[in-house]
Design a binder for these strands. Structure first.
Lengths: 214, 214
DNA sequence: TGGATATATTAACACCGTTAAGTAAGTTTG
DNA sequence: CAAACTTACTTAACGGTGTTAATATATCCA
C-alpha cells in the first residue's frame, strides 16, 4: 500500500525529501504537530528511517530553522538597492518585522524556540551559529556605516546593533505570542487598534529616538 | 503505599496543594518535564484527580504564570522608593531584566510561551489579561510622569511604553533562549563577554537614547 | 557464489495528555 | 432506619509522542 511502488520514484536524496515533507507539515500545522511519524507517513517510509538521516527531532528543527533563514535572507536581499545607510537600517527593521508577521512559525523556530539552539550546543560546541551571525553581521555593517555618516556618535557599534535587534525582536515576538493583543486596547487612544499598525508605530518611535543621534 | 495515610494530613485546599507540587516540579525541572502524572505522584493522588481541580494542563500553566507575576510585582515593589520618574523608568527596566535572568523559567511562562495566552483566549475571550495589564499600567504611568517632566516631547505615551517593554523583553528573551550567547563574541571587542553585562550595556544604550529626548 | 554492507523494517519501551467508567464514602431525604 | 443521591477519587484505556533494539532484505564486491 504505497510502501511498494515508492521505489520507482526518484529517490535522489532521501534526506532532502524528508526535510521537504517536514517543511510541508510544519508550515501547515506548526512544529509541535509535525511528528516523526507524520513525516514518515508523508514520504511513505517507516518512522525509524528518519533516524538514518537525522539524529533526532531537534536535528530536523535545526534544518527547518536554516530553511527559515534562507527565506529571511531572500527578503533582506531588497536592501541592496538602499544606498543610504540610515534608510537601510530602517528598512532592515521593517523587513525583519514583516518576516515575523508573515511567517510566524518560521520566526518562532529561528528566534524563539530553544530546540535549534540546543542542537547547536551539541553539534557546534564552539558557540557558532552561522545563520544568525550572518544576519547580525549585516546589521553591524549597516550600523557601522551609519556611524560613519555621523549617526550614533560616541556609541559602540555592537551595542547599538544588539539594541536594534532587541527592539525588532521584542516587538515581533510579543506580537507572535499574542501578548500584545491583550494590551492593545490600552495602546490605541482612538479607533480599532490594528495589530500590525501598532508594531509599525512603536518601531517608528524607535526610529525617532535614533534619528536625533545625528 | 502512601495512598492510605495521606488523608490524615491537612487536605485544606487540594487545588492549592496541586499548584504547590506543580510549582516545585516546574522550578526544578521546567515546564515540559512537569507532567500531570508527576504532579499527581508528588501529592500522592491519581493523575485523573488533577482534572477535578484544573481543566487541563494549560490551566495549570496559567496558574503558574500568575505565580510568576506575583513574584515580579514583589520585585517591582522596590520602585516605590524611587521618586524621580525617569530614574524609576530606568530602575523598572533593570528589575525586569534582573527578574528574567534570575527566574528564566517563570519569565518564559509569563512572556514567551503561548500556553497561558491560549488559556486566556478560551476563558476570558474579552481580551483581558489582568496580570500583564497591571504591570503595563505601571509602566504607562511612569512614562506619563516622565512626559510631565519634559521627557519624550511630542511622543505618544503608549508607544513609548510599548517600545520600552519591547526593548527589555527583546534583550531578556534573546538571553534566555540563548540566542545572544552565540553572537556574544562579536559584541565584546575586548575580553570575555559576560552575558549579563552585555544586557546591561545594551540597555544603557537605550537609556542614552531616551535621555536626550528631554 | 558467498559474505559484508547499507538500507529499511517491525516491535517495543517509556512516556505523554486526556476521557470514560466504576467504586467507595458521606449526605440527604422519604 | 434505609434508600437514593452526591461527592471524591480510582482504575483502565485511548491515541498519541520520541526513540531504540533487533531483524529482514537487497546490493555490492571479492
Amino acid at each position: 500500500m504505497g510502501i511498494k511502488e515508492r521505489k520507482e520514484r526518484h529517490k535522489e536524496d532521501l534526506k532532502a525529501r524528508i526535510l521537504e515533507a517536514a517543511k510541508k507539515l510544519f508550515v501547515k500545522e506548526g512544529y509541535e504537530a509535525t511528528s516523526i511519524r507524520k513525516i514518515a507517513a508523508e514520504i511513505e517510509f517507516s518512522p525509524t528511517t528518519i533516524y538514518l538521516y537525522y539524529k533526532d527531532k531537534t536535528d530536523i528543527a535545526y534544518a527547518l530553522h536554516q530553511e527559515g533563514f534562507r527565506l529571511l535572507r531572500e527578503q533582506l536581499g531588497a536592501l541592496a538597492h538602499v544606498a543610504d545607510p540610515f534608510e537601510r537600517l530602517k528598512a532592515m527593521g521593517r523587513i525583519y518585522m514583516q518576516f515575523a508577521v508573515n511567517h510566524p512559525d518560521f520566526y518562532e523556530l529561528m528566534f524563539i524556540m530553544k530546540d535549534p539552539m540546543q542542537y547547536l550546543k551539541e553539534h557546534h560546541p564552539e558557540e557558532e551559529w552561522p545563520e544568525g551571525e550572518r544576519v547580525f553581521d549585516g546589521l553591524m555593517q549597516t550600523v557601522s556605516a551609519c556611524k560613519s555618516g555621523g549617526y550614533f556618535p560616541g556609541m559602540d557599534t555592537a551595542e547599538v546593533a544588539m539594541l536594534s535587534w532587541s527592539v525588532v525582536h521584542g516587538l515581533s515576538s510579543l506580537y507572535i505570542t499574542s501578548h500584545f493583543k491583550h494590551i492593545a486596547d490600552k495602546c490605541s487612544s482612538y479607533a480599532l487598534p490594528d495589530q500590525e499598525a501598532l508594531l509599525e508605530r512603536a518601531f517608528n518611535t524607535y526610529v525617532q529616538l535614533i534619528q536625533r543621534m545625528h
